[in-house]
């Protein structure tokens, strides 16, 4: 066992997969010489040479290239520096990547990974702080994962690289320095589509994604002080969703709070709330409570930004409402 940072866990996964399979290659802005602006790809250029490439600033083209490179015998791992730039990749995702496996009657697979990072809280402003999870999770044909622990970051990235279909890999700028235990000897990839119970509890189920899992854990701690036992489920995979884990938990707690850092309206929490209604309505003692970003652009100033991005206090308040 070793305690490593989230960014290091991702780096480890990339090294392991590049060593294991020489069709895996890494490309993106500033990923080679500099090692990535979040240092996830540090040292890879030295180890793997031309299989690690700096690119011009051309997200739309890079994503479209990843689709067809994947179709023709390589396994691209593309870094899109900020999730806010995903709209530039979107055409290639929506109109190319997502369709061919089905439309061409399963003649081709597209084993590529698009890594990106989103989220706010540190004053990066309206064009560098968004969570656009729902935008990509909306697209049939894509998988979307969002690990929060270093161990999951490593195992899910390995799984994403080996997956025959496109995987959007969502990181968060505030997770890169998070430390956690990783068993270096265990090189097994994770299974995409499995949630994790981050904290067991009896009274209310809190479903959360990415960094919001940490906020939910904080909220659960606070609630514990009030005699409320909250169960926190880290979804890990936003698409496909682990329905069994969700329904099993709600069947025990009979209350649900759903949390995502993206916007509320047509957002990922709307899908979660509807999913619970579709599959666990009879187990609910109260309406599902949603915690999401306020529906507006992310402001720069700290006093404004903290009113838009959800935190543990919002989650705890939602849990109290659900239990009231």
């Amino acid at each position: 066992m070793a305690t490593i940072r989230y960014a290091e866990a991702l780096n480890l996964a990339l090294r392991e997969e590049m060593a294991r399979d020489d069709t895996v290659f890494v490309f993106g802005e500033d990923v080679a010489t500099y090692g990535g602006v979040f240092k996830v790809t540090q040292g890879l250029r030295d180890a793997y040479g031309d299989r690690v490439r700096d690119t011009p600033i051309s997200e739309q083209t890079l994503t479209a290239m990843a689709v067809t490179a994947a179709m023709t015998g390589t396994r691209p791992v593309l870094e899109i520096m900020y999730a806010d730039f995903l709209p530039l990749s979107l055409d290639a995702l929506v109109n190319q990547a997502s369709i061919y496996h089905y439309i061409w009657n399963e003649q081709v697979t597209m084993p590529f990974v698009l890594r990106t990072q989103g989220g706010g809280g540190v004053g990066t402003g309206a064009q560098h702080a968004k969570s656009l999870d729902a935008m990509v999770a909306h697209i049939p044909g894509l998988k979307v994962v969002a690990p929060v622990t270093p161990a999951d970051a490593r195992a899910l990235l390995k799984a994403a690289i080996r997956d025959p279909h496109p995987v959007i890999f969502l990181e968060h700028k505030l997770l890169y320095n998070l430390r956690g235990e990783v068993d270096e000897a265990d090189e097994a990839p994770a299974e995409i589509g499995r949630a994790r119970v981050a904290r067991a509890g009896r009274d209310v189920t809190i479903l959360a994604t990415s960094r919001m899992v940490l906020e939910a854990q904080k909220a659960a701690e606070e609630l514990a002080g009030e005699g409320v036992s909250a169960e926190v489920i880290d979804l890990r995979s936003l698409r496909p969703l682990d329905l069994d884990a969700i329904t099993a938990s709600v069947a025990r707690t009979n209350h649900a709070v759903v949390v995502n850092e993206g916007w509320r309206f047509c957002g990922y929490t709307a899908e979660l709330a509807a999913t619970i209604m579709d599959h666990a309505f009879d187990d609910l003692d109260a309406p599902v409570e949603r915690v999401a970003a306020r529906d507006m652009p992310i402001p720069y100033a700290e006093t404004l930004e903290r009113e838009v991005i959800p935190d543990s206090a919002d989650i705890a308040a939602a849990a109290r409402r659900a239990l009231a």
Partner: peptide, 16 residues
């Protein structure tokens, strides 16, 4: 510095 008196009332920040 994200102040109310800024050109964008602190909403934009230095890049915007």
């Amino acid at each position: 510095f994200g102040r109310e008196t800024g050109y964008c009332g602190g909403r934009g920040g230095h890049m915007l």
